[in-house]
Design a protein around this nucleic acid. Structure first.
Lengths: 132, 132
DNA sequence: ATAAATTTGCAAATGACTTGCAAAAATTCT
DNA sequence: AGAATTTTTGCAAGTCATTTGCAAATTTAT
């Protein structure tokens, strides 16, 4: 494991919410070239240490967001993303495993991955906007 | 409604699966500039005639895929995408409305949109690869 | 430690999508 | 219908996240 990878993994593990490459690149504890960041995010995901999804929001544009994933307990989480304050709210571990199995049976395909997330306005931004 | 919009809407309505801007732009029945295609896809989605999601696949890269949506019956569909042959398989209308309501109650946020899709290898590509 | 393999930084390249602007088409007004 | 006004289009250049070639630097294997 190289310095860059350790540092990246550490940041992902600490983070309470998914982070994009640009946010990671801006972090002082990651003084690496963007190419290195991107390459290592791929590496970590490939190795099962991280997972990601692409999200578009009006303000931040389209970016891939990464989060830490323990290689042993492999339950990934789903998220709500607030378009106003950009916070992510953890909706808990994925509960669609059963449904996936059913679909695989029904259609005969093999699912490699699935993407699920919500976007909208979070509770605190809603109350905030009432005060304006 | 301009020619471009009518033609676009027609193609979307005919299509059995979500289509990307580049695929639409390549269609002979849409002899319009790519800027026009993009602008009108935005327009149609804004008006509720279309809906979209961003999907990344190894071979085709990251693109937004659009599909027709009737403005009256507003139930959108979810899809499985085959990474091998690029076909989309319709999983039927969204059945998560209840779950969404629950989450809105539980977390206090307002959901504007949600994204859900599966990726993997379809049945026919699986059997195909057995013959190689 | 020394050689072999992998990773990094830099800079340029990609590719999807966007934008400014003047001409062309659609809509509104009379 | 015909002129005036608004909207849309094509073209070309621009963005922006992400990728890639290559030589130097760091790891890993021996």
């Amino acid at each position: 494991m190289t310095k860059a990878r350790k540092a990246l993994l550490e940041l992902l593990r600490e983070s309470k919410e998914p982070i994009s490459a640009s946010m990671l690149g801006g972090d002082p504890s990651l003084p690496f070239d963007q190419a290195t960041i991107y390459r290592n995010l791929h590496y970590l995901e490939e190795q099962g240490f991280a997972e990601s999804f692409i999200l578009h929001c009006t303000e931040h544009g389209t970016e891939r967001y990464y989060s830490y994933r323990s290689r042993s307990e492999g339950v990934h989480h789903h998220w709500f993303h607030c378009e106003k304050c950009h916070a992510f709210i953890d909706l808990g571990g994925c509960v669609y495993q059963e449904q996936m199995k059913d679909w695989e049976q029904q259609y005969g395909f093999t699912i490699n991955d699935h993407t699920f997330f919500l976007t909208g306005i979070c509770a605190s931004c809603k109350s905030q906007s009432l005060l304006e």
